[in-house]
Nucleic acid binder design. Structure first.
Length: 109
DNA sequence: ACTTTGACTTGCA
DNA sequence: ATGCAAGCCAAAG
């Protein structure tokens, strides 16, 4: 078995796909799960590399920064689609940020 | 081949 | 509590 870069991306996608409906995950959490402690930037980079066809399969709108802000909203089709999708899932917002106390996804190891 | 930037996080002053 | 700097890995110029 080889550890190719593709596997890393695939792992990220797998985790993002594991985020349940109405929940959000932070880049740091995912980064820690895939092994890189402070490689949170890679998550965003990986999501940006997500094929457009997979974007419907991968709930990238459930990935926010640690403050709950939709930092990646600009990379969506429109800056507001991310928030609309989250709100459509019943996610409550505090100003421009997600209410992490309620919707923060806590992965089970 | 080297430099700069990026959908981030944490730490120190 | 707020602000600046460093760390991390990968891709693009």
């Amino acid at each position: 078995m080889t550890h190719e870069s593709s596997d890393l991306y695939d792992r990220i996608y797998s985790i993002v796909r594991s985020v349940p409906y109405g929940k959000v995950a932070t880049y740091g959490q995912i980064a820690q799960i895939i092994g890189v402690r402070s490689g949170a930037r890679m998550i965003g980079w990986a999501l940006n590399a997500v094929p457009l066809q997979d974007r419907i399969d991968i709930p990238c709108h459930r990935v926010v920064n640690r403050l709950g802000e939709l930092s990646g909203k600009m990379h969506f089709e429109t800056p507001y689609i991310m928030r609309e999708r989250l709100e459509a899932e019943g996610v409550s917002f505090i100003g421009e940020a997600v209410d992490m106390k309620i919707h923060l996804w806590i992965p089970v190891e």
